[in-house]
Write a protein that binds this DNA or RNA. Structure first.
Lengths: 218, 218
DNA sequence: CACAACTTTAGGTCGAGCATAATTTTCTGT
DNA sequence: ACAGAAAATTATGCTCGACCTAAAGTTGTG
């Protein structure tokens, strides 16, 4: 269950630690803040911080799971007749619609914090690699095949998100407004997905489902 | 100059340390060998190892620079009338021709060593990211433009190498022979580059050079 | 041959990550 | 409500990578 006092406290403690840590990092820089300082600021033991966040980077990339599974989810949620490319394109458009932070709208301090810390940048790469891996797994599962081609398709689809994320971060760092960035990203996404259209336009189209409760023909 | 005794000794020391370290790592695993042990085995002080290889991972990825600049070099070396895609395709074919190690023919122990160490795997991602970055820079320099499109082209081209590298490593780990792997990679590369052909076939074609010492027309 | 420039070494600091056991807090059954 | 089980948190201590500084050793040069 997720309703007991124990579970609630755990979630609260975890969130409190993460919040305080992010604030400290954004202010002084990731490498200039020690885990002990985070623990002290959060009013817990150093070991408790380590228990919740095995690596220091985890304090920053708290929602990594969502990002990692996002593309695979988009593939799995594609509609009948929709190609994988179309599904990813649609999921991106929807993310723009709701101004999703994971598009790169992370705020200047946050972007700078990551950029200034090799450890964080490296962890970012790991997350992106894991996302592409998860997408590749999903594609392999869907198509029933797993060779270079499936992995390359995954790489191409994931590349769009990745490059657009970099663009979003760049514009965010440059001080552009959120609306400005979203408009630019939407336009760039159009061009980017269009580039992939000839190669991937008819790849992984979900077949129409078996006819519903209509009287079967014959 | 690089001919003095001092320079020669430096190169020898560096190489000796790197060789001994790689042997130790391959035998016992990257994380199970400390820098002190490497230093002791090489007969130098711990600090000397650190001086040559600021990070422990550098002991393994010694020739990272070559890999990082490889794709950018391929772009820059393309022939008149040759597209960027064609240049990368050709450079890959040439690498297969000479059985280049960087295709993923790294040997089972080496591949396992990297796979078993999060630190090394992460450093591998950094190198791949740096290569894509360098390729993107080269493309931007050549085209005189640097926006999402150029970076996406770089991502797609680099993806081929990356996915094929993973395939090479996988087959290497599976115990396939070098010749077997090379044949498989060559075939897969054909399919992979063909997939990109419609999107990138006429991107970044190098213009014909100004006519040579022929009498100018008119 | 002496001095400058450079390399190597010695010794120490700091922080992340991990292990273990003790202690406190929450949950469960009666 | 209470005892005992289970889980979370804390206290303590260790190893190792990364970094710093000063001294000692080595090579190049006038």
């Amino acid at each position: 269950m997720t309703s007991g006092l124990r579970e609630r406290k755990k979630r609260e403690t975890r969130q409190a630690i993460s919040d305080i840590a992010t604030a400290l990092f954004a202010g002084r820089g990731f490498d200039a803040v020690t885990i002990s300082q985070v623990a002290e600021a959060a009013g817990v033991a150093k070991m408790t911080v380590t228990n919740y966040f095995p690596r220091k980077e985890d304090l920053v990339f708290d929602r990594a799971d969502t990002i990692i599974s996002g593309l695979a989810d988009a593939i799995n949620a594609r509609r009948p007749g929709e190609s994988m490319l179309a599904a990813v394109r649609r999921s991106y458009a929807e993310a723009v619609e709701r101004a999703d932070v994971t598009l790169g709208l992370v705020g200047p301090e946050f972007a700078r914090m990551i950029q200034d810390s090799p450890v964080l940048a490296s962890r970012g790469l790991e997350i992106l690699a894991a996302r592409e891996q998860a997408l590749g797994d999903a594609i392999a599962a869907e198509t029933g095949r797993d060779d270079v081609l499936q992995r390359l398709v995954a790489a191409q689809l994931a590349s769009v998100h990745r490059v657009l994320f970099a663009e979003g971060s760049r514009r965010s760092l440059a001080g552009e407004s959120r609306a400005q960035i979203l408009a630019a990203l939407a336009a760039a996404a159009e061009r980017a997905f269009n580039l992939l259209e000839p190669a991937l336009g008819d790849y992984g189209i979900r077949p129409a489902p078996p006819a519903p409760a209509e009287p079967a023909p014959g």
